[in-house]
Amino acid sequence: MPAGTLYRGREGMWSWVAHRVTGVLIFFFLFVHVLDTALVRVSPEAYDDVVATYKTPLVALLEYGLVAAILFHALNGLRVIAVDFWSKGPRYQKQMLWTVVGIWVVLMVGALYPVLGHAVREVFGS
């Protein structure tokens, strides 16, 4: 059987799994994020206290993970739209996935310093 016709266990399936997992993770974060932002209606101190935890090195690492999840879900979502609406989409789904992964890697490298820079300075001193 030519490998290209096998869906299960290949790019198509794993990108679908990754899309699902990142989607669920992002939804749970969104729920927490609306709750923490709602603290601006309680008091400036309550909000600033919670946001302070977002600035700790450990949570910065989680933020980097969140950015990774969102960027993959966004880029792969555009790929899904292309597969559904572009007449040649299904034929190029594999190439599009590797394009998604390529752009994702570049953006993740770009996000390294802005998202994790302050955490590295805090842990290892400036």
Binding site: P44, Y47, K55, H118
Partner: peptide, 24 residues
């Protein structure tokens, strides 16, 4: 959402000092 959220991430986490500027 791709446009809204990626711009949001850029403003909140990357530009102008990243997450450290965020507060009330």
């Amino acid at each position: 959402l791709v446009v809204l959220v990626i711009t949001h991430l850029l403003i909140q986490l990357v530009l102008d000092g990243g997450v450290s500027k965020i507060g009330f």
